[in-house]
Amino acid sequence: MIKHTRIPALLLFVALFFAACKDQDGPLPQPDPTLYERLGGVDAIALVVDKFLANVVADDAINARFAATVADPFRTQLLRNNLIDQICAGTGGPCQYKGKTMLEAHTGMNITDAEFNALVGDLVAALDFYNVPQQEQDELLAILGPMKSDIVGQ
């Protein structure tokens, strides 16, 4: 009886031994990191967003559009969190954008091409400030770019 119970135990040991050897052949292929991970997660995105907002407030081509937001700390927080969530969610992070759609948020504002371009310029300046590589910048702008039609001229 004892001999019979030893055989499966021996087989299990051999199986585990070979399984362990297989692991040593090399690590399992990891999935490519998402843009969110390459950007550095929510803390890094928050730093870029803060720099972007500071750029916008100092930019007199568009800062009048944000007068009410700057004057009200609650609205500042709402805009900041929405921007972080939008970038985080769009780049594959664990966030959910909870704000209005771009069309809802910008209807009636008559935002011009020049204002939109100034805003993008302020974002690129923030990304450059933190030395975000060109590939990540391009990927991020490709995610945000299609929103232009819902923002400009509405």
């Binding site: 929510v42 927080q77 900041r80 969190n81």
Partner: peptide, 13 residues
């Protein structure tokens, strides 16, 4: 959302 954990900010020009 993880952004809720961040300390709020104020913008001053």
């Amino acid at each position: 959302s993880p952004s809720q954990e961040l300390e709020p900010i104020v913008l001053t020009a």
